[in-house]
Structures are given as structure tokens and as C-alpha cells.
Design a protein around this nucleic acid. Structure first.
Lengths: 167, 167
DNA sequence: TTAAACTTTCAATAATTACTGAAAGTTTAA
DNA sequence: TTAAACTTTCAGTAATTATTGAAAGTTTAA
């Protein structure tokens, strides 16, 4: 396999994986492209490489920046803006985990808390709703706490954690 | 909040969370409905409750069964089929994690392995592609191993794991 | 200033994904 | 058998989501 084929395979796969996990294809592909690029890329570069429109590029770069995954960099002597992504996979994972927790898990925990706190009217179905949503609530809180714990340790969290768990 | 409102809030939230994570709404909602139901439900029950068509119900139940999350149960004296979901949240998580690993993570690991194994032609961009995809590969392998490890311990994996990690 | 170089926004459109409903298929009781 | 009770399939359609491209907005160099 040559460079170009490998590059396209990587970017394509990353895009599909994104879709599978609720991240849009262009967004995932832009990140993948920056991830393997040796230098920051301009909007023009990205558009040309991925063959997507200016608007699409602009919107998805913005989202990636909102997530904290991509940053603007100034290239001296250049008027236009350039972009890079976080290059360290561990740091990248930390950012994504933290954001998904904040945006998606926390709000669900709140709902589960509300729902599992309704008044027990003595009926079976109410009891079941309370029991099951409480179980889900507790699991979510624990899993989220664990994820944060894992991911808050800057250095080698994954390796360290695996070692601990294997003991 | 009364039972019905709480129930609808739970099912609705679960559906939205599903969409956010690449699981279709109807599928997530059927699972949610079964999860808080005190007894197995028929296709008719599900259709009526969620106001979705027969075809949709059938297709999504099938998918849930493929995932191993929902099972058919025979109710004696009844001709039609009834369905339940795994009621234990830990077991449910185990099943989902295992399936997502098998269906989605393993294939990506394979691609990352292929891509990071291309011949180093000495150029910077090839070196970068190899380096970055290798890092991603290693992270994925580790994270996947950890997930499997966590999730393979039947009893209270989450609690146990948190205790270990907090040490 | 101003005008060129660049970025963002957003209405229109395309692409994708989900859903319906009815026909075809299957199972079971008599 | 057969026909009623049920489930699955799938072509057509609807709903959702992503993308385009051009106009509007912004920045900067002269």
C-alpha cells in the first residue's frame, strides 16, 4: 500500500467510524486529515483535499474548535488562517471524553435523577420505573466518574489503569 | 411528576441519547419501554405505546435481538410473541460494550494496523502517517482490552474498578 | 478609506436514514 | 388441509441531516 492509498483509507475509515458514533463525516475527516498532516492546513487546503465546499469546511472547523480538538494557528507572513488538531492521542481522548460527558452524559443523568425521584404511588409499574431508572442513574454516575478519573490523569492514564485493573 | 410524564420523559430522553450515539430513535425507545415494563410486551403493545408502525417495530426488535439485548419470550396460552429486554444494567452494559467492540472497534483496529504498516519511504508525510496511526492503533487496542476486561467481570465490575482506580 | 483577501452565514438542495403500510410469508389450531 | 392469527419484508415516502454556493460580513495592507 502506498502513502496516498493509506491516507485515503485512514481518512475514509475515520469518517465512517464517526458516522457510526454520531459524529458527522466531514467533521471526522477534517480531524483525520489534520491529524496526519505534517503542518497546519488552510481552509483551502482542506477543501481541496477532501473535496468539500467552503461552507462545509468552515462550519465543521468551527465545531471542531468548539470541541477544543482543533485550534487556529497563525503562520507568519500568511494572511489566511491555518488549523491544527491536537496531535497527542491521549490528550485527544481526554478532550473528547470530557466533552461528551459534559454535553451528553450529564444531562441524561439529570433526567434519570428526576424520573427516578417521582413519588411512589404504590403501583407495580411506578415501582419498576423508579427501580430501573435509579439503577441506570447509578450506573451512569459511576461510569461517568470513572471516565473522568481515568481521563483526568494526564500521563499514560490508559496504561496505568490497565495495570491496576489487571492486578 | 406523575408516572405517565416520567415514563414519557425517560423514553424520549433515551431515544435522543440513542440518536446522539448513532442508535436509531425507535430502537432506543423500544428498549427503554421494555426496560421499565413490568411484563413482556407484544408487538401490538409496543406499536400502540410508541405510536410506530408494525414494520418499524418488527425491524427494530430484530436488531435488538441481533444485539442480544432483547429476547422473545413465550407466554403460555398466547399465540403471539412477547419481548423482554435484559433488566440488569450491568449485564446490559456488558452486552453493548462487547458488541460495539466486535462490530465497530475491531474493524477499525484492523485498518489502523494496515495503514500504520505501510513501507516507510523516508518522506515526512509518510513518517507522520505511520506515527500517528500507530499511536491511534495502540490506544485503540489498549482501550478495547480495558473495556473487555472491565466488562467481562460479571459482578459489580464498575464499583470494583472504581475502587481500584481510586487507590 | 478602500478594495482585495479572506471567513461566515444561511436558504436551497442533495444525500442519507428512518418509517409506513400493505402484500407476502409463516405458524398454529381445528 | 385451510384459514385465522400472526410476523416479516420491502418499495415507496417522509423526515432528518449534511452539503453547497453565493451573498454578506470581516480583516488587513496599502
Amino acid at each position: 500500500m502506498e502513502y496516498l492509498e493509506a491516507k485515503e483509507k485512514f481518512i475514509g475509515t475515520w469518517g465512517s467510524l464517526g458516522s457510526l458514533w454520531g459524529i458527522n463525516k466531514a467533521m471526522a475527516q477534517i480531524q483525520a486529515l489534520l491529524f496526519i498532516s505534517t503542518k497546519p492546513l488552510s481552509m483551502e487546503d482542506i477543501m481541496e483535499d477532501l473535496k468539500i465546499s467552503r461552507g462545509n469546511t468552515s462550519m465543521n472547523l468551527r465545531q471542531l474548535m468548539d470541541w477544543g480538538i482543533v485550534t487556529k494557528v497563525l503562520v507568519s507572513g500568511e494572511r489566511k488562517e491555518f488549523f491544527t488538531t491536537e496531535k497527542d492521542v491521549q490528550e485527544l481522548t481526554r478532550i473528547i471524553a470530557k466533552e461528551r460527558s459534559r454535553r451528553e452524559i450529564q444531562p441524561v443523568i439529570k433526567v434519570l435523577d428526576d424520573v427516578s425521584s417521582i413519588k411512589d404511588d404504590g403501583t407495580d409499574k411506578t415501582k419498576e420505573l423508579i427501580k430501573q431508572t435509579k439503577a441506570l442513574h447509578d450506573l451512569s454516575v459511576n461510569a461517568d466518574a470513572m471516565l473522568n478519573k481515568l481521563v483526568t490523569q494526564k500521563q499514560n492514564w490508559l496504561t496505568k489503569s490497565i495495570i491496576k485493573l489487571l492486578k
